[in-house]
Amino acid sequence: MMDLSERQWVKHAVTHPVEGFEDMRWKRSGSLKIAFLIVILLFFGQIFHSRLYGFQFGMPPEKTFNVVPYLVKSVVVFAAWTAGNWAVCTLLDGEGTARNICIYSAYALVPYIVQLYINVVLSHILIQDEAVFMDAVSLIGTGWSVVLMFSAVRTVHQYTPGKTVLAIALTIAAMLVMLFLLVLFLSLIQQIWVFISSVYTEITYRIRT
């Protein structure tokens, strides 16, 4: 039973929100390669959704394209989610490894990503009056991903539903803490850099005179 290829496992996990991940766990399946591919698709999906959207639904938000926000919105947020979830759930007796958390979370994002691409295409076919269809697609895709994400976290750590909610809340808190530390770290680095550069300037002036 269930002798599926890795690609078929993606389909299985996505189309079976309740049992899909359990089956995957049972068969010890899931590919890190596909997970990375999904995150890359998320990255491009977000760029397309912002830059290639139909003009009748609004102008591109900025004049010059900057890749960094999109990188942060996809890759960095996903990495932070994985790291945060791993850190939190290690403390909360979760069974998931970092690898599995990464794979399961990525698989859970598939409906959301598909929704992004579908909406980009639809935005070039529909007009403003028909935007409700796109809203529906977006709502279904996002909702489905949320359900899958819940299922993924529950399965990968073998939690009860209540504990899953707690773990997700703590993961989001952990992501915020990471953000805070990052800002702190950057500002410190900047100060050190200013110090070093001013010392360097001072020395060069001394040498010159």
């Binding site: 139909g54 003009f55 009748q56 639904f57 609004g58 102008m59 076919i125 007009i127 403003q128």
Partner: peptide, 22 residues
Amino acid sequence: AMKYAKRGGSPDIYNEAFEGWR
């Protein structure tokens, strides 16, 4: 109309023109 609406930054005119074009 679609071309100039895009240049002029008017999604609403673009929308009407696109509807007609479609």
